[in-house]
Simulated scan of single mutants.
Amino acid sequence: MIIVMQPGAPELEIERISDELRTWGLHPEKIVGQYKVIIGLVGETAGLLPERIQELSPWIDEVVRVEQPFKRVSREFRHGQPGEVTIDTPNGAVVFGEQHPLVVVAGPCSVENEQMIIETALRVKQAGAKFLRGGAYKPRTSPYAFQGHGESALELLAAARAASGLGIITEVMDTADIEKIAQVADVLQLGARNMQNFALLKKIGAQNKPVLLKRGMAATIEEWLMAAEYILAGGNPNVILCERGIRTFDSRYTRNTLDLSVIPVLRKLTHLPIMIDPSHGTGKSDYVPAMAMAAVAAGTDSLMIEVHPNPAKALSDGPQSLTPERFDRLMRSELAVIAQAVGRWPQVAVGV
């Protein structure tokens, strides 16, 4: 349930209403919009009559029920207003959201060595990326596959951050690792395999670093949004949703099926920013540029693209990784055209 205040409602009146609602056993959350303030109510509201709340103040414009099972995540919770996630990086603040320029995240699947990760960071930054992705801890289907270098790779990510000024996104697999990863990463990633790791979702929600939540490979949209609800319910509102392909009946020609239909669906259901990962979504570097352009045309807020200096020798996910040269061409000659056409290309020149 949400309370929409009239424009110009006094701050003291908003606080008075919130204090009163707390005595009812509810948890009011103030959301400041461009023109109005909204008070989101979390708690047992099923038996609560909107008319009773309306009587609390003449400054209340309307009281609306949130019908979706996911409450804080719902677009209704913000009265239709889009959300955004602002992240401070060494190069300045970067904003993810539908009213902001496209944000591109790029880098290798795994951090392999210092020279490789710093070289990649500098190359993707020059092409226009704002964040470096790189796995220190890697969930792999086979126990014999490369699992990442672990804690030592965090030091290499820190070195790449210092050298390039890019923000860092890396995956968390275990609740015990959250604190040390958060010391290096600007965004904590929950991968597809951990989308419904509820203990991890709760712990991630209890800390304040922004979270990138990837869709599970067989998850419905509602399951995905309910996973995000765990994080917001824990107190962390800064969540970005990442579609990375789902498992369907055909895996011969693509690694997964990249579900671009989630972009308009999520736009209707949630206020959270949207990211598309065409690298995992297709599994083949030849298909990544086309799907990246399609995602931008469909309205994504962000892209995550795997880039490796030598994909043929990558320790993980080489077949889906672009070379720095191909990534540069994608950014300058292909994505720039599409993003400019839909009004989502940064005004700052690429490479600056």
Rank of each mutant, 00 (worst) to 15 (best):
T270V: 04
L260Y: 13
G283W: 03
L241N: 09
A297N: 12
P278N: 08
I274S: 09
N236D: 12
D277I: 02
I276R: 09
H271N: 09
L269A: 12
G234K: 06
C242I: 04
E243F: 11
L269M: 15
M275R: 02
R247L: 13
N238G: 02
V239R: 10
E306R: 09
R267Q: 14
I246C: 02
P273D: 08
H271V: 03
P273W: 08
T254K: 05
S279A: 15
T300Y: 05
N256H: 15
F249L: 09
S261Q: 11
L258G: 09
R255T: 09
V262Q: 07
Y253T: 14
H308L: 02
G299T: 00
R252V: 12
A292V: 02
M293G: 11
E306C: 11
M293K: 15
H280M: 04
P309V: 05
N310G: 00
V296L: 11
A290C: 07
K268T: 13
I240R: 09
R252D: 14
D277P: 04
P289K: 06
G281L: 02
K268A: 15
A312W: 00
Y253N: 14
A294C: 05
R255P: 10
T257W: 10
L266M: 15
P311E: 01
A312C: 00
I263L: 10
A290N: 03
P237D: 09
P264N: 08
A314M: 05
M291P: 00
E306L: 07
R267D: 14
V307K: 03
M291H: 11
S251I: 12
P237W: 03
T257I: 05
A297M: 13
A297E: 11
E243H: 10
A314E: 01
L260F: 13
A314H: 07
V288P: 13
S302T: 04
V265S: 12
G281W: 00
I305Q: 03
P289S: 06
A297Y: 06
T300S: 11
R244S: 13
I276N: 03
I276H: 09
L260C: 13
I276G: 06
L303F: 05
I240D: 08
E306M: 09
E243V: 07
L260N: 13
L258H: 11
I246R: 01
V307P: 01
L269V: 06
L266Q: 07
